[in-house]
Design a protein around this nucleic acid. Structure first.
Lengths: 342, 342
DNA sequence: ATGAAAGCGCTAACAA
DNA sequence: TTGTTAGCGCTTTCAT
């Protein structure tokens, strides 16, 4: 079996020094055309490829980005991971995945593990971040960007959609549709997405002089969202909201099922439903969910750009909080006000 | 800012040799209780953590598993990745993700990149594998297991569901339901899952003396599956199949939408539909899809077990082809034959 | 049980 | 442009 081929072996075969080989495989190095060719030939014959780990040790750059994810149930994340991983591959980086679930300890432990791998940067997708952890990364000189979460921590870059504005859009649409018994089913209360979406939603309601009619929490989970929907809608008709905004599509889809199949209500005839994310199933005809789109492509682009900037030019890179505006995608699950078009 | 702490610094602070520190952080090494305590204290004070990359260089074990994925559209994969990553974390490994998409070159290039990272093992999820590549990995001494794909290559371990048996189950259920104009919409023809599912399906049909009524290809993609469904069902009623089996749920969901919303047909009144995978949306009331379940948990367990075996005891580990039987989950999208129960 | 010393495969000064 | 030399931070003999 073909054993590990080192740069030294290539050097010997090509009749050059080991460092010459190293130079040939280092983008910006100075080598003559002739040497380069000799080396490349020898390398090809031997099947040589540089050892990334050895390179990482001496150069201090592993070309690995640590990605911390909490859960993948919400389909927004798989999509985002795919795009993120792709974008980073184009920059010569690869993604090392860390799941911050119960079985593997808490976020703090995970961050330690990440740092052990000498990653060049960290992306946390929807994970609560203590300022303590953030500081440790900063101390270690490892840039971090929060994806789909913002945090009130000085000097930490985050990329989100404009959740506040998105919440407003949902409310304005419902208001324009003539609804006046409007409910809200929130996500996990610790999430900035939940807070900001609700804040925008409530602000727009308030601006219109309307009070929230009902509120429940679904914790971003299917079963809890179903339970929340039942609590809110399995009541006397005159106690029932005529519209509901849910903090994400995942919950909105579950709520639509409860409304239509458990309670026999019509959507949007009896109740208008709006979600947030615009995950693929939201567009499926069986749901046709009106929702605020998160522009995953843009969010990923900004994330990668920020990360590269922090890695390449740490001195000049300044932390920022990017909030990307997303459109309300008008479909059939909420009554369409006069003058608005799909 | 806290600079990088090395084992040497810890050693000096603890008043021991650098190798003593190494031993304390190496599970099976011999250190006295006293030294261990001194070292641990010093390490804690300094915030020392071993550098995984340096360890990998000398030990030859990176504790990194390369994962090659083609696409994450099919929701079976995100789920599987999450479980896989979790299981590997419990064994002290982490997953480095490689996407084998167009933008990043073909599978071959990706495999080279993976090997550059000195991974201890490779899992390929639904990726076509040439015997050439497989051999290169074997030559490099890196164990590989194929997840959800089998391949006719000598000596390569794969873990799949029992797709042939699953295909049979779908056919038998449809047959028992009294259907006699049965159609099949296949996935990407290069996939072993597609081939095996169809082979089992056709075999059961043949056993019953029934011929396939119609066949189309959906390539495992939403849009192509929609188009295939339209070709198959947008015809004169007497030319229309009364049942259809699709090679995965992703396509089955799309087909149900076409049937009900584009063509105004009733499911299962006019047409029975069966899918394969049992992804979460299959259970949603709006679809309530009858489907063959892939037991992701078991598949992941087997994958991890095989991988660990190949890594820990390469001599005694023998390649195997694991096919895990999965039940037919009877829901509402296909007529339930007398005597069968949900 | 512990320390000294020799690398793992590579990059990055530094000379030449 | 090239070769020589010195490490990167760690594990692992080998003595002691």
């Amino acid at each position: 079996m073909a054993e590990k081929v080192t740069s030294l072996q290539v050097a010997q075969r090509a009749g050059v020094s080991q460092s010459a080989v190293s130079r040939v495989f280092t983008p910006g190095a100075s080598v003559s055309k002739k040497t380069a060719e000799k080396v490349k030939l020898a390398a090809a014959e031997l099947g040589y490829r540089p050892n990334v780990l050895a390179r990482a040790m001496v150069s201090g750059k592993s070309r690995i980005i640590g990605l911390v994810v909490a859960y993948l149930e919400n389909q927004f994340y798989p999509t985002a991971i795919e795009k993120l991983s792709n974008a980073l591959q184009d920059h010569g980086y690869h993604v090392l995945v860390f799941l911050a679930s119960q079985t593997s300890g808490n976020v703090e432990d995970v961050m330690d593990e990440i740092l052990d791998y000498q990653v060049d940067g960290i992306v946390t997708a929807s994970v609560a971040m203590s300022s303590d952890i953030a500081q440790r990364c900063q101390a270690a000189g490892v840039p971090m960007v929060l994806f789909n979460r913002s945090q009130d921590i000085e000097g930490i870059t985050s990329v989100t959609s404009d959740n506040y504005a998105g919440g407003r859009k949902a409310a304005e649409f419902l208001l324009a549709g003539g609804h006046n018994r409007i409910g809200y089913i929130g996500g996990w209360e610790g999430a900035s997405t939940q807070r900001d979406r609700e804040a925008g939603f409530l602000a727009a309601l308030k601006d219109a002089g309307t009070a929230l009619f009902a509120r429940e929490t679904g914790d971003f989970q299917t079963e809890k969202a179903r339970a929340a929907a039942l609590r809110m809608f399995d009541v006397a008709p005159d106690q029932r909201p005529d519209a509901v905004f849910l903090a994400n599509d995942h919950m909105a889809l579950a709520a639509m099922d409860v409304l239509r199949f458990d309670l026999g209500l019509s959507v949007p005839g009896d109740v208008s439903v709006i979600g947030y994310d615009d995950v693929p199933p939201a567009a499926w005809p069986a749901y046709d969910l009106t929702t605020v789109r998160q522009r995953a492509n843009l969010m990923v682009e900004e994330t990668v750009a920020a990360l590269m900037e922090h890695i390449d030019t740490p001195e000049t890179a300044n932390p920022r909080r990017v909030a990307i505006d997303g459109p309300l995608i008008i479909r059939g699950s909420a009554r369409v006000p006069e003058g608005w078009t799909k």
